[in-house]
Design a protein around this nucleic acid. Sequence first.
DNA 1: CTCGCCATGTAATGAGTTACATGATTTA
DNA 2: TAAATCATGTAACTCATTACATGGCGAG
Lengths: 194, 194
Amino acid sequence: MSLECILLGLLRTPKSGYQLKGEFDAGVAYFWPAELSQIYVTLKRLKERGWLRDRVEPSDKGPDRRVYMRTPAGRRALRAWLAGEPQVGDERFSYLAQVYFLDELGDLGATLTFLTKLRERLARRLEALRATERAWASGSPGYPDRSPPEEFHPQLTLQLGLQVGAARLAWCEESIRRVQARLARRENTPAHGS
Amino acid sequence: MSLECILLGLLRTPKSGYQLKGEFDAGVAYFWPAELSQIYVTLKRLKERGWLRDRVEPSDKGPDRRVYMRTPAGRRALRAWLAGEPQVGDERFSYLAQVYFLDELGDLGATLTFLTKLRERLARRLEALRATERAWASGSPGYPDRSPPEEFHPQLTLQLGLQVGAARLAWCEESIRRVQARLARRENTPAHGS
DNA sequence: CTCGCCATGTAATGAGTTACATGATTTA
DNA sequence: TAAATCATGTAACTCATTACATGGCGAG
C-alpha cells in the first residue's frame, strides 16, 4: 500500500518509472527503498486501477519513455491516505537480532568486533543523510525554519533520519565502551570460578 | 534468513512453535515481530534442512506439543551468522512517507493533527519498552553494568530500542512545535499574497 | 457446558528482491 | 566502436500476513 501512495505522491508532476527510481534513491530511499522492477509493476497496477494515466513521450536522453500522471481518483486516494491514521507498523533489524544472540559465541571480543563494524556502517549512513541536509541548507532559503511549504515536510522526515541516526551511532559507541569495560574487568579478575 | 537464525538462537533450550511465539512477543518483537503461522512454516523448513530436530511431548497445559531443538549443523549455522557481517539492511517507515507528502493536503493543521496522533503512538511504544526495562532492572542483579553475561546482549538491544524510541518521540515533539510556530506566523501575516 | 487458552497446521495473497531479457542513445 | 546510461519489462523466488480449519484441555 505504501509504495503505491509514495508513487502517487511523487507524481505531483508526470514522470517515468526510471525517473521515479532516481527520486527514490535521491530522497526517499532512507525510509522507503524501491527496486526499478517493483516500481514498474506497481505503476502498471495503479494504471489498471484507474489511479494513474500514462503516455509515451520522447526522452531528451535515450529511448522513449512511458510517463505516468495522477488521475483525480489517484489524487483522492493519496489524500485519503494522508488524512488517515499514522501507519506505525513493524520494524525489522537483522543486526539487532545478531547482537541479541551474540552471547552464543561466548566471546566478548567477537561482540567488540561486531559493534566496531556496525559503528562504521551506521556512521556512513548518517554521513549520507548529513550530505543531504547540507544540500538542502545550501539550496534552500531560510533552511530550516523558513523553508517554503513544499520543502517543509520532506525536511521534517530528514530531521528524523538525522536524529535517529545519531541516536543509533551514540548507542553503538556507548555499547563499545560497555563491552570494553567488561573485558577490562574480566582481565583484572581472571580467577572467577576458583 | 534472519527469522531462521532467530529461531535457532531462541532454541538454546527445546521449545515448541507456540512457546516461541510467546518469546517473540515478550522480548524480540520490537526488532523482529513474527506470526505463529510463519514460525511453524520456518521450523518445518529448518527441520528439513537438518538444522533442527523435533520430538512430540505432552504439555503440562493443553494438548501435545512438537518441541524443536538445534542439531550440531544448526548450531554451526547460527554461529556463522553471528560471526559474519552486521546485516544493516533496508528500513521502511510508512508514517515517514506520509509526513513527506503531507504538504499535498495544503493544510498545516492536518500536519499538526497527524503528528499529534503519531506522538501518542510513539509514546506508547516507548512506554512498553520502558516496562520491559523495569522488568530487567528489578529481576536482574547489578543491572545494567553487572548483569550476567547471558543477559548482557539482550539488554544492549533493549538500550537501542529505548534510545531510538526516545529520539523519535523527541523529534515528533519538536516537529509539533515547529508546525505550531509556522501556524502562528501565518496568523500574524495573513495577507501573504496581496 | 462453554469459554478461553493451548496447540498445530494449510491456503491464498501480498510485497519485494534477484535474475533475466531486450534494446536505444549518447559519450568517450 | 565500445562502454555507460537511459529505458522497460517478465519470471522465479523469498518472506511475511491474513484467513481458515481443527481440535485438546482446564476453569468457572
